[in-house]
Amino acid sequence: MSGRDFFSKRTKEVSNTAYRKRMIFSFLIFTILVIAGIFAWKWLNNQPGDQGALKPLRKTLEVNEKLLTSTFDTSKKAKIFDVKDAVKNVRVNGLIGMEKTIDTSAWRLLVVRGEGDTLRISLAEIETLPKEDVVFDFKCIEGWSQVTHWAGVPLKAFMDHYHLFTQQTLSYIGLQSVDKKYYVGIDMPSALQSQTILCYEMNNKPLPMNQGYPLRLIIPVKYGIKHIKQIGTMYFSNVKPPDYWAERGYDYYAGL
């Protein structure tokens, strides 16, 4: 390429008037756009909040969610690590809805099958179901991650065992902590993904109190905020169950 390419092709003569007109016009448009941009930014930031997020942004999160749910591939597994890669000191985060002590003999997992139809399942009973180990990179929405080792019954196997088949055709599972202060909603495809477990063991030992004893959710296709501890109640719904952090500005889906 020679210099002719650019300068010869693009150079022209214009009259001073035409030049001035062009300058005024383009700077006028530019100024209008800058002002419009500032107003658009102000408009966006003055929009009402929808569960802690500005309405247009909440709408966009929901569009993202729809897109991600429709393309969700259950055959895609979170990467599984070797047990020896799992850390011994597991990071504790999130103590909302955590009771100081839990009476295991009295504790039951309440599974609401329908109105006025609730199963009450003890920990001992859950422990008789086929146990699966999950060693994966636990990811917190804050940004840190940690390879950790958990065990429990796959949620799908649990639901099959208790004949919760029609419930599996609904869109969401709702989970509440024993004291109902912490709660999450999870889309059914993610809940039924094979790595999702109702977990009662960490590093081959019963769950410590601060990790959600007696029963917590481990769902590797979601951020930690969905891994609810000290589960008390499970229910099923076609409408989005309330979700603690989604009510505080976070993305409801929180999928990985």
């Binding site: 210099g3 010869s8 300058m23 530019f30």
Partner: peptide
Amino acid sequence: QAMISGLEVIKTENQISANERA
């Protein structure tokens, strides 16, 4: 201003001829 108006004024002949020599 060329990033706004699109046009850049060529002040001297050298600018072109220098480039044409290239």
